[in-house]
Amino acid sequence: MAVCSALQDDEVAELERAMSFVRLESNTSLVEEGEPRRRVYTLTSGLLRLSLALPDGRRQITGFLMPGDYLGLADDEIYAQTAEAVVPSGLCSFSVRDMDRLMERYPRLRDRLHLMTRAALRQARETQMILGRLAPSEKVASFLLHMSNRAAAYGRPESPVPLPMTRTDIADYLGLTIETVSRTFTKLKTQGLIRLPDPHSVEIVDKSRLAVVAGLTVH
């Protein structure tokens, strides 16, 4: 597990003692927005959907957690977002209290977690960049690149990008209609930028040109 990579064997052993494993079925929730933050999680398999309740009662999807991502690290006393499993998922978790205790004893762990927190914040910023784009093609292209880059950062293949969530989830996340999301996938496919081998994965055919569409590179 990623937090362990900076630690000595005895430190890892101690961390493992404090760790517990959680399995989640599809569409069950792990934590609710506003709940006191008691545990910190890291996803080992599956996919989680993060969401916020809007004042009018609707939910806004704010992101997706993929294996390797953390939940609750950057939050304060309460969880900032609701997290639910999109597909059956596995997570490791620590109680916040254990975590604080271990960090005091092992400064390297503290540094490590610090980096993780920074990564989580960077991700949130990237999400804002995706959502801040104007054109649907830019949004979808940068979303795909973001998912692909994160997978690569965890040592998994850049492509195909698994998308086990529904088109509605993606539409909700990007602030687009489902029709626009479907049409945009078709447009990107027609231009030879992606392939759609099955409804739940996207093959990135040409990463640099997809980045040009996303507006992330000046060509």
Partner: peptide, 16 residues
């Protein structure tokens, strides 16, 4: 142009 931003985005690789 604000009405065809999506088209402009998709044209960028063809222009490149």
């Amino acid at each position: 142009p604000s009405h065809y931003v999506d088209e402009l985005a998709l044209l960028r690789p063809l222009i490149a």
